[in-house]
Design a protein around this nucleic acid. Structure first.
Lengths: 341, 341
DNA sequence: CACGGTCATCGAACCGGTTCGATTCCAGGG
DNA sequence: CCCTGGAATCGAACCGGTTCGATGACCGTG
């Protein structure tokens, strides 16, 4: 069951078995066959801990994401799935590490315990002490998302600013003048969560350019909050005829709020935003949205990390994605009873 | 950075440092303080691989779930999240292992490489060679779901049969006579996927008891398939006024199909099934459903696994859950234009 | 005072791999 | 025929922890 046992049964030394397996030195065809035969018989597979200890590589990458408690969004699910799949293709395993802020013990441990060769971070904040620490320690990591100053980092991100701008322009082009923005929860915005900030920035910029009347909201990551948020929107400004959202989990609630208020989508009210495609398609009418290419992003993150692990001195690389808006069925021209003002 | 370095600076032997850390032998208060001081200064944290090699425990559990490619459902997401969280509470890390069938190399490796102390399996099939292998190898594992003969296994599962029966009875009590069952995708049913089989069984049993006219369908795990499935249902039997589903991901599509067909929920058509609560609440009207307590199940699975790891000889334990139906807004009495037959 | 027991500590062995340097054997070149 | 060099293999050291047995100091007891 261990390499010594294999060596004994094959009548060779442990090092010869090791070389036969790794191919790092030549081994005669005959002994190689003999060793392989013994290995097959016993179903021997080398112990990962021992191997990691000896050569300093664990063949594992850490996926760092915020602590549960709060629920995960569908997008996070897609990231996790695609990261695991992409990592498997490179023969890497994935260790999940729930960890919010840097002070978190489990984050410190992940690095110091050397359980992983590198890490992929999700849910990046503009000022992110986790990223700072990783950079400082020169630990191989790739962010899904980017900080305020990502120059020296490796990352793959979405241009939330441009995406939300595009959404606003889309609504403005359709003639909407009173538009709301439904952001992620307030505590995320406050803690500097990237997409919430950059999205908001894009919204304000484009709205100013187009001279729109706007209001912005934060909204909990669940249907009930979405419904409540929509009530507030119509109460604050009944003339509102469109909204842009980043909040996938609230989407169902927003739709329900509109239904309850008797606003038909898209006739009376247009909805758009930045949402993973498969979720945009579950609501009726299907959401016109910039589809978050979560799968591609997860894959790219792994590609970058593997490249960084293979070439420790490579210059930082990144991918900034700007997926187009998929026109589905949730937006339409502003007209009818809600635009009389 | 390693234990020898700490020992040197503290002026003691490596073993003393180890004992000071583990507390397995007594160490004088004075040396303990000295050692702790050095450790704090250098920020020393023991290497996980070395520790695992020496004492045979990795403090990691494997979470085995089906290969990606196919998309994940929201329920799977909830399981992953709750398992990670619960494991963290016991100081275990979670290693994700995508692996479908047993022949899968990565599944073999997970065990033989000794990367994990135990495993939690998701997506159990009635005949599951993964489970067979684990039992045979006496490897500590807990299933989320149960096989056809789970007697010797450790598992936490849902009584899908009873749950679906309850849904059928609920519809029958409301006067529905023509009812459809929307199952998970056909390939899952064919491969013996537990919930698909037991759910179907419960549906047929209860429908027979109540003398209902029924049809059963398999449906892809996405909105488009759900919509297509609903079209078929109404085409096959326009008198259908209710459906029961296990297919969370298709739910949005089912609703859309009903809207397209002009059937109002719940006035003209009742929808119910077995779905995680947070997803049941995103659709409008909110789904009356047996809420899958995914969070609780993940936590229980970890509890069981930890117990099994701590007491290798303990007798198999399990939890069979039967959550009640949450009455929300998607079911109502059978009447009106669709019940004229 | 000799003896037995506890406390504190150390050195050495071990976990299961990888890797370096040395050794042996053999073929080819001068 | 001797020398050189590459192929094949082995033993030993090492990775960074844990744990066992031994040792010496110190204590109380008969």
């Amino acid at each position: 069951m261990n390499i010594g046992e294999i060596a004994k049964r094959a009548g060779v030394s442990r090092s010869t078995v090791s070389y036969a397996l790794s191919g790092k030195r030549s081994v005669s065809e005959e002994t190689r066959r003999k060793i392989q035969q013994v290995i097959d018989e016993l179903g021997y597979i080398p112990n990962a801990s021992a191997r990691a200890l000896a050569n300093g590589r664990t063949s594992t990458i850490g996926l760092v994401f915020p602590p549960a408690g709060s629920h995960y969004t569908g997008m996070q699910l897609d990231f996790i799935g695609s990261v695991v799949e992409a990592a498997a293709a490179y023969d890497y395993d994935v260790l999940l590490s729930p960890s919010g802020v840097d002070s978190d013990r489990s984050f410190q441990r992940l690095l110091a315990e050397r359980r992983v060769d590198g890490a992929i971070l999700m849910e990046i904040r503009l000022q992110d002490d986790r990223v700072d620490h990783l950079v400082e320690a020169d630990f191989p990591a790739v962010c899904i998302g980017r900080t305020a100053h990502p120059e020296g980092d490796w990352w793959v991100g979405l241009d939330h600013t441009a995406l939300v701008e595009a959404c606003v322009h889309h609504l403005a082009d359709l003639g909407h003048t009173h538009v709301a923005f439904v952001n992620r929860p307030e505590h995320l915005l406050r803690s500097g969560y990237e997409s919430a900030h950059r999205g908001l920035e894009g919204f304000n910029k484009a709205a100013a350019e187009r001279g729109l009347t706007t209001r912005t909201y934060t909204c909990g990551d669940d249907a009930a909050s979405g419904q409540g948020c929509l009530e507030r929107i119509l109460q604050d400004d009944p003339a509102t005829t469109g909204l842009v959202t980043l909040n996938e989990a609230a989407l169902g609630g927003l739709y329900r709020g509109l239904a309850v208020a008797g606003r038909h989508v898209p006739r009376d009210f247009s909805v758009t935003g930045v949402v993973a495609g498969r979720w945009a398609e579950t609501v009726t009418p299907q959401l016109t949205a910039a589809d978050v290419p979560a799968e591609q992003m997860g894959r790219l993150a792994v590609d970058l990390l593997v490249e960084r692990l293979d070439h420790p001195d490579a210059a930082p690389r990144h991918h900034l994605l700007t997926p187009p808006i998929s026109l589905r069925a949730s937006t339409g021209p502003a007209h009818g009873r809600t635009t009389r003002d």
